[in-house]
Nucleic acid binder design. Structure first.
Lengths: 182, 182
DNA sequence: CCCTCTTGTTCAGTATTCTAACCATGCCTA
DNA sequence: TAGGCATGGTTAGAATACTGAACAAGAGGG
């Protein structure tokens, strides 16, 4: 939540609009606009959405413009992978947790024997990956194939997909998703 | 603000995490998580950010995945341009106001005699446009040129830029910006 | 069957956002 | 100078987000 206020003020100023004008168009009180722009309060998503609407922008656009250029070390140690799932049958460990303006979700996935992501699901993004160890049956749309170490995949996440470990040992996969949704 | 809750729940479930687990990692109470996921309250940006953090996602990623496939008429009449600025010296009228998943901000800009966007500013996006009528002096970075009807431009918005009407009549420009931030 | 551990939901109380009315300032015009 | 009308900021009270504890439903396990 980096200086939302400042950015909002810029957007408004750029349009030669007053706080009151934006308030009128968005249905939010001008005092709230003032407070939000000066980071004295964190608006609810609904409120922010209404304001952006009045400015002809969208939540999507607003946030995709956020966190632009910040310096950060490009290196991460082997101990810096962060578990983002609950390591029972499948473990998802991500790289670069706090990297600014992260556009990629790089995952090290470990599938226990018989592990299965279950119901094919879909979300809008693109993902690619490769099997490091073991054997994984990957289903994308109506295509299905067993991938072994060295094999890889690349597909649009909107296609329903599913992963299943078919080896009699744990399998590992290294994958990348962008945008970092999963 | 389309079903934020549903999407959040999907993200969580996909990770095999419980409401309580996410609460612990995000510092938000598990009851809030429950309420938010069922759209019974609209979280503040701070809160949402904390939750997404615990799920390994970002505001940017979360919203860029939002509003995917919704049907909508592709046609807009000449009377459907919406003024998003305050028409004094410069008028900004945008197209497709309520178009779902809008990725482009198409603008019809009208500059009064002597109008000037003033201080060069910058934001992260890409924009292109062409002069329809009159003459506009465009400055991008350290380059400056006068464009007349038919001339165009295309640049990365991160470069500081500025527009100035140098004709002795109103000038009009048709432009596009993506993502729809401006 | 009871016990316990897990899951998510409900609810009363607290903290925060949000609003409405008021205030301060600056810029016109008379 | 006063008066009007912009601008944005402040503040008490209403509305809502948020919390913690209590509740309900299900899954084993003895």
């Amino acid at each position: 939540m980096p200086k939302i206020g400042t950015r909002l003020r810029e957007l408004r100023r750029r349009r030669n609009l007053g706080v009151r004008e934006v308030a009128l168009r968005s249905g939010i009180s001008h005092s709230s606009i003032s407070l939000i722009e000066r980071d004295r309060m964190s608006p609810s998503v609904d409120t922010l959405s209404a304001i952006l609407d009045a400015l002809g922008t969208t939540l999507t656009g607003f946030f995709s413009d956020l966190n632009s250029a910040v310096r950060h070390s490009p290196f991460y140690g082997a101990d810096e992978w962060v578990e983002i799932g609950k390591a029972q049958t499948i473990s998802y460990r991500m790289l670069g947790m706090n990297h600014p303006n992260r556009q990629i979700l790089m995952l090290h996935e470990t599938y226990a024997v018989g592990a299965d992501t279950g119901e094919p699901f879909s979300h809008s993004a693109q993902e690619a990956g490769t099997v490091l160890h073991g054997a994984v049956e990957v289903t994308v749309g109506d295509e299905c194939r067993v991938l072994k170490a060295g094999d890889g995949y690349y597909f649009d996440s909107r296609m329903p997909h599913r992963f299943r470990n078919v080896a009699n040992e744990p399998s590992t996969v290294l994958s990348a998703v962008t945008p970092p949704t999963y």
